[in-house]
Measured scan of single mutants.
Amino acid sequence: MLDDRARMEAAKKEKVEQILAEFQLQEEDLKKVMRRMQKEMDRGLRLETHEEASVKMLPTYVRSTPEGSEVGDFLSLDLGGTNFRVMLVKVGEGEEGQWSVKTKHQMYSIPEDAMTGTAEMLFDYISECISDFLDKHQMKHKKLPLGFTFSFPVRHEDIDKGILLNWTKGFKASGAEGNNVVGLLRDAIKRRGDFEMDVVAMVNDTVATMISCYYEDHQCEVGMIVGTGCNACYMEEMQNVELVEGDEGRMCVNTEWGAFGDSGELDEFLLEYDRLVDESSANPGQQLYEKLIGGKYMGELVRLVLLRLVDENLLFHGEASEQLRTRGAFETRFVSQVESDTGDRKQIYNILSTLGLRPSTTDCDIVRRACESVSTRAAHMCSAGLAGVINRMRESRSEDVMRITVGVDGSVYKLHPSFKERFHASVRRLTPSCEITFIESEEGSGRGAALVSAVACKKACMLGQ
């Protein structure tokens, strides 16, 4: 009897593995994704193909990295998701002549009506938060230079001027797309009239992360975010950046690689679950690469896999709870928690219980395998993109072996128990001629924006502006 049951459990697990095998990517698959990513990057950089390229390769006008001589107080704003952060950054000489960066910050959550109302409502709310922060720190009387981390696709015309191309991540505030974001912020500050600010720089969160990590390690020339969304930036040779005049030196390019796949480059790798996630998203047909990796989508992918296993009578005796059938019910943090389970399955059992399920031991094991399959594919897909960037940098610099540091931020990278190990191992397999160091950014977005502002202020002083 026991043997029969054991055989049935083994057969069930084997069927589960057959279904989950769809998520496995072979090294040849990853090399294919990497080569296609490089081709799209090239198209994004070139003037004649930029418009139709899915990977936009947006110039950021960040050319210099901090040298350690900029000092002063800077205000930093960070808008990239449902939370908005205001930070005071003091850049100065530390002990023994070292450079020191001290920060104080406060988080504000953005109400739904500000995210989806008008641009005026959104930026009025942001300036209200700045006003509140300055009151708390008794700094209303000071006109501070301000660095703005704005983590949406922007076409820069200068370091302090950028046109919002399109909202992502659930934002829909009308009247912002096609307009200068810094102008919208300046107008809102003017409307309030109770404080003055000098907006000197606007950067993407990947750029802010790279600059913040450069402060720790001067070989950091790539910034990457794996959180709600997924994106990367890197220092490109100016001669390859056709959208900006000049051939000397390097400029940081914001790849906006989340949109890779929007022209069909990933079609052969998309599964039924991916198509369902895409169809029910706020932007169907867009940001397809990001939807395979980002935390906004990972939990939902797992939920759809679990429903398939229920329908195949391989999980929960073929019956799903009402909660499990509800879109968004299986949160991405559950994926991390399930994979963090120590082996007694308590954590998995508790999560499934909150979803109205009474799982068996085998159910718990199957749910864990589903989570591992989805998150491992995410790590491997992400590795193909980064390997594409790094191999490109090595080739354009004609280096036999390139040493490089990548600064990384984002909740999936930082909080998932195995993502970074799987990701690092896969990147290294795909970049055999590179020695890569990964560092995690601390308060990256805010500190990085302030350091970019410090560079901009120093330049302005040198130019006598």
Rank of each mutant, 00 (worst) to 15 (best):
L2C: 02
A6W: 09
E9N: 15
A11C: 15
K13H: 14
Q18D: 03
L30G: 03
K32D: 06
M37W: 04
D42M: 04
R46W: 06
M57V: 06
L58D: 12
L58F: 09
T65M: 08
D73N: 00
S76T: 02
L77I: 07
L88N: 04
V91T: 05
K102W: 11
T103G: 03
I110C: 12
I110M: 11
M115K: 12
M115F: 09
A119C: 06
L134D: 04
L134Q: 04
D135G: 03
D135C: 01
H137D: 08
M139K: 11
K140Q: 07
K143H: 04
F152R: 12
V154R: 09
K161S: 11
G162W: 13
L164F: 14
L165Y: 13
K169E: 13
V181E: 06
L185D: 00
R186Y: 11
K190D: 01
D198V: 00
D198S: 02
V199E: 05
V200Q: 03
V203W: 00
T206Y: 02
M210N: 00
I211A: 00
T228L: 05
N231C: 07
A232C: 05
C233V: 01
C233M: 00
E242I: 00
N254T: 06
D262S: 11
E272M: 06
L276H: 10
Q287F: 15
L307Q: 08
L307S: 06
L315G: 06
H317Y: 09
H317A: 09
G318F: 04
G318K: 01
A320H: 02
S321P: 13
S321I: 10
Q323G: 12
R325K: 14
T326P: 05
E339W: 01
D341L: 05
I348T: 07
I348L: 05
Y349E: 08
Y349F: 03
T362L: 09
D363M: 02
C371Y: 02
M381S: 07
M381E: 00
S383L: 01
G385Q: 08
G385R: 02
G388W: 02
G388N: 09
V389P: 03
I390T: 01
M393F: 12
I404G: 05
Y413Q: 07
S426Y: 08
P432A: 12
S433N: 15
G446L: 14
G448H: 11
A450M: 14
V452S: 08
S453K: 14
